[in-house]
């Protein structure tokens, strides 16, 4: 038994994953702790008052948690949803009526989305009131603002996907507002978003791709930078 285990540990595959072998000396044991990513989410040094829960209210963490929930439920919803005009509404109804826990998934996704917008906003307020945007964290504030915008955009693009009257007119109104931008820019952006001049099949596909791929990927990248900078700048 022990022989097999030894052979396993010495194998190429094992060593490529766990590069250090079993920690046998004190140094390696310490390093196992030092280099563990999950033990060091927080910077090595933080101000004492910012450790207090009521300082941050854990709002950033909660928004990240909601994002995870959204990714999981969203991925499951994608299994049943087809972004095309004849099918989109029916698929949503099918989720509601015949898919096991389909309504639960939709509700989770929806409430998590609403909550995320609210929590991200509160997070921003908190950062503002605690003055955490001040140097050296001013760049992270900018990233945070961009993240807030992506959150709103995620919420907005998801609004069209059920393809009911509410979403149709919601998107019609929204894109018409964009049109009001001067020098013909608005019309260009609106055309780009809708893939045409009216909310139709093209708009549905574009919003679907934006909602399920482009914006989430952008958000994930930005979040990675956001977290990394918090870590570097000594936030909590």
């Amino acid at each position: 038994m022990k022989k097999i285990f030894d052979r396993l540990v010495r194998s190429q595959v094992w060593r490529s994953i766990f590069r250090h072998g079993l920690p046998e000396s004190n140094r390696t044991r310490a390093e196992a702790i030092f280099f563990n990513f999950f033990f060091h989410l927080h910077p090595t040094k933080v101000r004492k008052r910012s450790i207090k829960f009521t300082y941050t209210w854990g709002l950033g963490g909660i928004s990240f948690g909601l994002f995870i929930v959204l990714v999981i439920t969203g991925a499951l919803l994608m299994l049943y949803y087809r972004p095309s005009v004849p099918q989109a509404y029916g698929d949503m109804k099918d989720l509601q009526f015949v898919v096991s826990s389909g309504q639960f998934l939709r509700n989770m996704h929806r409430w998590a989305a609403h909550a995320m917008v609210a929590i991200v906003f509160l997070h921003m307020l908190r950062v503002f009131y605690t003055g955490s945007y001040r140097p050296p964290k001013e760049f992270n504030w900018v990233i945070g603002v961009i993240l807030f915008v992506t959150t709103i955009l995620l919420s907005y693009t998801g609004y069209l996907l059920p393809w009911d009257q509410l979403s149709f007119w919601g998107i019609s109104v929204g894109t018409n507002m964009i049109r009001a931008m001067p020098f013909g820019i608005g019309e260009m952006i609106s055309f780009l978003l809708l893939g045409g001049n009216i909310v139709g099949e093209n708009a549905l596909v574009r919003f679907y791709v934006l909602h399920c791929f482009i914006i989430p990927v952008a958000a994930i990248l930005l979040m990675a930078i956001h977290f990394w900078r918090i870590r570097k700048d000594g936030g909590v």
Binding site: K93, D94, F97, V98, L166
Partner: peptide, 17 residues
């Protein structure tokens, strides 16, 4: 009525939207 529905109330279609 609402053919895709699987509950009494929803299938009668006397619901919002």
């Amino acid at each position: 009525g609402q053919g895709s529905a699987t509950s009494y109330k929803e299938s009668k279609g006397k619901v919002k939207y």
